[in-house]
Write a protein that binds this DNA or RNA. Structure first.
Lengths: 98, 98
DNA sequence: TGATTACTTAGCCATATGGCTAACCAACTT
DNA sequence: AAGTTGGTTAGCCATATGGCTAAGTAATCA
């Protein structure tokens, strides 16, 4: 979910639930194109929606957001480990330059 | 650079520089396909290479690795902020259920 | 009822991604 | 010199992604 449109939608939804057209407004893109992004967010479970009358309200889902943050945390630790190993490697190469 | 092949290559290179064929060996993929991944890593600056005779050695680059970790750090903080706002939002919605 | 609004469906298009084979060159090995 | 090895180039292919238009449906407004 690295897509800028999708990220912006998430960001907007943090201010509260919104209708599809509200969410659509700031994006210079045709509705059907935009709807695809909403569908992907729904498929990913980041967002839920319910239709009342002819408007569909989109709500952000807390659980997967927390999951996303956990994932980032874990990734960061992984990279920390990598940097450590890189450090070790650099030192090893320095000791035997050839 | 979310591709699993590329990630595995980086992981291997943390053990030290390696030739293209060494890196290729564990991946069930034709050489030209694999080479494309190496090229992308080079284009992204994560890796450098030099050819001696007919073999090309690939080296990992420290600076962009550090940059990657910084980026992850920043992202994590962003998501922390988002979770905070989500919390606030949830509380607000609870107070006025309709 | 007729028009407008808010989506929705269907289908087309360009580009990107990750894979393949075939053929090639250059550098060793025998 | 002939063969093998390590890498490279070129070009094809399937699928995915992110965009579009055109045409629909259903709800609400005038």
């Amino acid at each position: 979910m690295a897509d800028p449109t999708r990220r912006a939608v998430i960001e907007t939804l943090l201010k509260g639930p919104a209708s599809v057209s509200d969410l659509h407004a700031p994006h210079a893109m045709a509705m059907p194109s935009f709807l695809k992004h909403i569908r992907k967010l729904e498929d990913a479970g980041l967002v839920t929606s319910q239709k009342t009358g002819r408007t569909r309200m989109i709500h952000i889902e807390a659980a997967p957001m927390r999951a996303a943050e956990d994932w980032l945390s874990r990734q960061r630790k992984l990279w920390e480990g990598r940097l450590d190993r890189l450090q070790t490697l650099a030192e090893a190469l320095e000791r035997k330059p050839q």
